[in-house]
Nucleic acid binder design. Sequence first.
DNA 1: CAAGCCACCTGTATCGTTACAGATTTTGGC
DNA 2: GCCAAAATCTGTAACGATACAGGTGGCTTG
Lengths: 334, 334
Amino acid sequence: MPPSPNERPTLKTIAFMTGLGITTVSRALKDAPDIGAETKERVRLVAAQVGYYPNRAGVRLRTGKTNVISLILSLEEEFIGLTSPMVVGISEILATTQYHLVITPYSTRSDPLDPVRYVLDTGAADGVIISRTEPKDPRVALMMERNFPFGTHGRTEMGLVHPYHDFDNERFAYDAVRMLVERGRRRIMLLHPPPSLTYHMHMRSGFERGLRDFGATAVPFNKVDLDDSLADIRAACEAAMQAPDAPDGMISGSGGGAVALVAGIEAAGLKLARDVDMVSKQSNDLLQWLRPEVITLREDFRLAGRELAKAVIARIEGQSAIELQTLSFPVLQN
Amino acid sequence: MPPSPNERPTLKTIAFMTGLGITTVSRALKDAPDIGAETKERVRLVAAQVGYYPNRAGVRLRTGKTNVISLILSLEEEFIGLTSPMVVGISEILATTQYHLVITPYSTRSDPLDPVRYVLDTGAADGVIISRTEPKDPRVALMMERNFPFGTHGRTEMGLVHPYHDFDNERFAYDAVRMLVERGRRRIMLLHPPPSLTYHMHMRSGFERGLRDFGATAVPFNKVDLDDSLADIRAACEAAMQAPDAPDGMISGSGGGAVALVAGIEAAGLKLARDVDMVSKQSNDLLQWLRPEVITLREDFRLAGRELAKAVIARIEGQSAIELQTLSFPVLQN
DNA sequence: CAAGCCACCTGTATCGTTACAGATTTTGGC
DNA sequence: GCCAAAATCTGTAACGATACAGGTGGCTTG
């Protein structure tokens, strides 16, 4: 019985059209060595002609390969818009491959291990990308233990070697201090990431190294971090500016945080560039347009997405993890 | 042969454990009417106990149901961050179902029909969500013709009934004009969406109705639209402000556009609230923090994501399209 | 008590693909 | 020419699920 011409073509369709066996067609399309060159050519031609795509469910059922990369996203952090460019970067890479991108969400209020366990237990993907990486990240430990391919946005501190892409937050904070000191600022305040995340340490250590090397002092600012609401950050900043030892320089670990700090400074009746200078990490340029006085160092999330997608695929293909660790560096805007 | 206890459990595992047939287990888990109540209970218990999830590839191969919703994203538009909250909204809904969210990207430089054709031809998803909807949108026509479930962010003008969620841009522009006139502004400029998109018409007609009803006049501003770069928009705005008939009121169809307009106004040496008032659509609150003088009306993209996800699922389940059309309204910030 | 009906359960075939173990034909060596 | 070794090709089974067409046993019904 000839396969219906209206249905999506399968190996059977091509087998019928070429007069070959289904197995032969399958192996021809895989360029297997035991198939004749002319046969392969013929099969490829017919396959292209009828617009054949392998059925993903068939492949997945038989081989276990899902051809899916899962991006695990916290529903809370993300609406700030940071991951949007990351999704774009990942998509750019996956578009050139067979992989699809699946978004696996979780709520920060629930266990961050849940989505990872879900993917591992159900075999929902061939590889995973996670962010909000912690020094002793249990997700990383779990995936390493199961030997499951993944990449992290951010590093860990467990002596486990795994693929990552990270922004050099140590250098960012160090350079930020330098730039502030160059502008004559000496009393510097840092709006840091939540202490649970690895890059908190990086940013703090760059900050402190900068203070030492360039001779500035830290103004404590520990009541809020980048996970807090902009309203809370602004209020804390306003209070800090009105305290006796108010800072004359500020560093913000994100563009959103910087906006809140600027609002706090101005609510205290002070003025950027005149009373305070600020260096901020920035991923898009809205801040730049409205407060060009803020010095911004760009973190390229799109690049991060590209690097992570490449790393995870390479890991799936068996490349060793140590070759799949990349770092990117702050770039001064303008 | 008992199924290996290390592997993921399948129907076979449960069948072995309960002493039932595979078919019975399958039907019991589906709550089929021809299975005894006690049996169902027993099967459900064992299934929960061993942590059974149906194998997606098996279901998909046998039934054709993918349990996937595809969000089709333009790689260019999106890094402004608009779709990030939309992804969150979609995820919130899908998390309560069996559906996975797959991001299917395309480049605005290529044919927007490509990703739709891909999903249709490969059966990659059970339903699709698209944005950047046009009055005669060929993607909508194609999916309607193939009777494929989808939802659009934005309406069409083809006399075809399909699920959509839209923001009432007509009302937005109308209200915006009113608010500007209330502040004594009479010469109003509109930064509109690209003319190819449906909501361009909506926004323009609300704008013009507002001008008539409230007695204001339009200042032409047709060289740029919201798809242009912020730099181009700013330059165009600066030029407009220096022309003899400069506007004293402005309406921006997006928060990003508003930032560029503000920069243009200020580059021309003018001042918000004093020389010009502005009403902008806004999806996050960065603008609000740095230029509180700008009046912002919120468009809730997260809600849009939720509504669209619900609509597509309902459509898949056979609900009629006309019941799946929703509109949301501008909300004044503060 | 046979027939019919219900309530429950189950075997078989199938979706599209690939691993595996042959089968068939060609080629080459002597 | 004959046999072994390549070179090509192919059928079967299996991945996990479900549609479909039967089974089986008990109970009512006339």
